[in-house]
Simulated scan of single mutants.
Amino acid sequence: MIRLPELDPASPTRFPDPRTALREPNGLLAFGGDLSPARLLAAYGRGVFPWYGEGEPVLWWSPDPRCVFRTEALRINRSLRRQLRGKPWRLSVDSAFEAVIRACAAPREGHAGTWILPGMVAAYTELHRLGHAHSVEVWDGARLVGGIYGVAVGRLFCGESMFSAESGGSKLALMALAGLLRQWGWPLIDAQVANAHTLGLGAEEIPREAFLREAARLAALPGHTGSWADAGTLLPRPGEVQATR
């Protein structure tokens, strides 16, 4: 029988030690609590994130190993640059956060339902309003064709989800985000749990212990709280990005 700690509603910043998470299912740490800004920021700063389905209590996770992107390693390659050639796409930051998260929450072919439930949309939109959650958008004219969103704690960026309405949209958003964070000296994007798609984009798995040490270090550093909309000027035009290979 699985026995999980229940989070104390009166202590939004307290979590069990992530090292005590279950091995099966991998990383399940606790249940309960809420998705208040204080609890979410405390969770991400400790290497913990919420993930649950319809009809379940809020479940909190810290898997081992952890999937991450190294911002220094994420650069647009020649194949994506060729794909972008001639497209009138443009990039922006924090200009359509709610549209991005709702697009990420929309049903996808081959998947039943979504884990980005209405309560999560509301919670992360509130984090965005407070200057802690951010998005990168890819546009074709006035149409949103790709995007990514996540949470920033100190200099740690915790990626949550991305979407494509056209081929290459999510990949461009990810590469643009990595380029922006690289300019700021942020070395990691937390991708939580590996899958074939993220590994194909350049993610890697590292031991949870190593991730927790690095997450604690980065979360304690001064970051960029508030809107990142002005950072859009740091992003290149998609067709002008220099390829690396």
Rank of each mutant, 00 (worst) to 15 (best):
S164N: 05
P9D: 12
E98Y: 01
G223I: 14
L181M: 01
G223E: 11
T71A: 08
G55D: 14
A106Q: 11
R155K: 13
L212N: 08
H111A: 09
I101E: 04
A191L: 04
W89E: 12
S164K: 14
G53Q: 14
L4H: 00
L218I: 00
V121K: 12
L181W: 03
F31G: 00
A219E: 04
L235H: 08
H197Q: 08
E6H: 02
R70G: 04
I148L: 14
S62A: 15
Y124S: 15
R78V: 05
Y149L: 07
Q192E: 06
V121G: 04
P9L: 14
G226A: 03
M175Y: 14
G119S: 06
L40T: 10
A231T: 01
W228K: 08
E54Q: 15
G86R: 12
S161Q: 07
L156S: 04
P107W: 15
G185L: 11
R39K: 11
N77Q: 14
G159F: 06
C67F: 01
P12I: 02
E166W: 03
F15R: 00
F15T: 01
V138N: 00
L156D: 07
G146M: 09
I101D: 07
G146P: 07
A123Q: 15
S170Q: 10
G146T: 10
E6V: 05
T20F: 13
G47V: 09
L40Q: 12
P88C: 05
N26W: 02
D140W: 01
P12T: 01
